[in-house]
Design a protein around this nucleic acid. Structure first.
Lengths: 139, 139
DNA sequence: TGCATTTTGCAACCGTGTTGCATGAAGTTA
DNA sequence: TAACTTCATGCAACACGGTTGCAAAATGCA
């Protein structure tokens, strides 16, 4: 996703475009896997971590990114694929490799239907499988 | 679970019984919901947090407790129900209430079967639903 | 009893995440 | 353009959970 596409993405989600925000959006779109705040810090040396943090918080509020807690101790962010600002349903399962400590999106695997007991109201889900990824188990 | 039951639980899992460990095991068994390290600190004033931490790490290594990451920023621990030291399959879904910030065990809900893509080896799962619990949504 | 080993408490530390504050940029009005 | 307001940003400091080093205390054993 190039600069212009990122800018229009921001607009569509009601986020005012600034140079920093475009940089963060580009970095997110370039990442194949969900990225942590510290990984973004490494990647984007021109912006202070508080700026990246605040940008991510803003993005989150506008449903531009969602957060995955893979148990690694730091949250990971990825761009929402859905264009609908209020649709959080582009969720999918994630796989955390305990060897290489990377988090994979299991896009192919359908998200299981869960029927919760009466009274519980579900707003989002966080399904993470832990184990060893193909690359690491081959060794 | 009283002191003696806790002691025998430790033994069965190959953990040497000490006064502190029994105290931690009792606290865990008394908790209805998975508890965090800081909650244990509050509950057990007689033991330093490093001691509680090390005890939990020991318990984890002997499959006496398992860890749930509910996204609240701190891990939560609960006693394994399975007696088999090598059986981690007493896992169940958890529900994190965003209002009261408590974590519930959804014991009744079956854990969904996930068929992962070829090559991935799953060792454990962490399925957490976020939303509003019956108690909070009633208000 | 003396010795080796384990357990524990204390204090310090690390990293992620978060906030206060002052500066700086951008937009608005006259 | 100048004066003003609003928003975005960088810097530094902080909060917190988690973790470790180390020395003292407790335990087990010869």
């Amino acid at each position: 996703m190039d600069r212009q596409e990122c800018e229009s993405l921001l607009m569509r989600h009601g986020v005012k475009s600034t140079p920093n925000r475009v940089i963060v959006a580009e970095a997110l779109s370039e990442a194949r896997e969900p990225v942590s705040l510290s990984e973004l810090e490494e990647k984007i040396v021109s912006i202070d971590k508080s700026g990246i943090f605040r940008t991510l918080a803003l993005f989150r509020g506008h449903h531009l990114v969602h957060v995955i807690d893979d148990g690694s101790g730091s949250a990971r962010y990825e761009l929402c694929h859905s264009e609908d600002e209020h649709d959080d349903d582009d969720q999918h399962l994630h796989f955390y490799c305990e060897v290489c400590r990377r988090t994979f999106c299991l896009s192919e695997v359908p998200v299981p239907e869960i029927s919760v007991p009466q009274g519980y109201e579900v707003t989002s889900t966080n399904f993470v499988l832990h184990g060893i990824c193909p690359e690491c188990s081959r060794k």
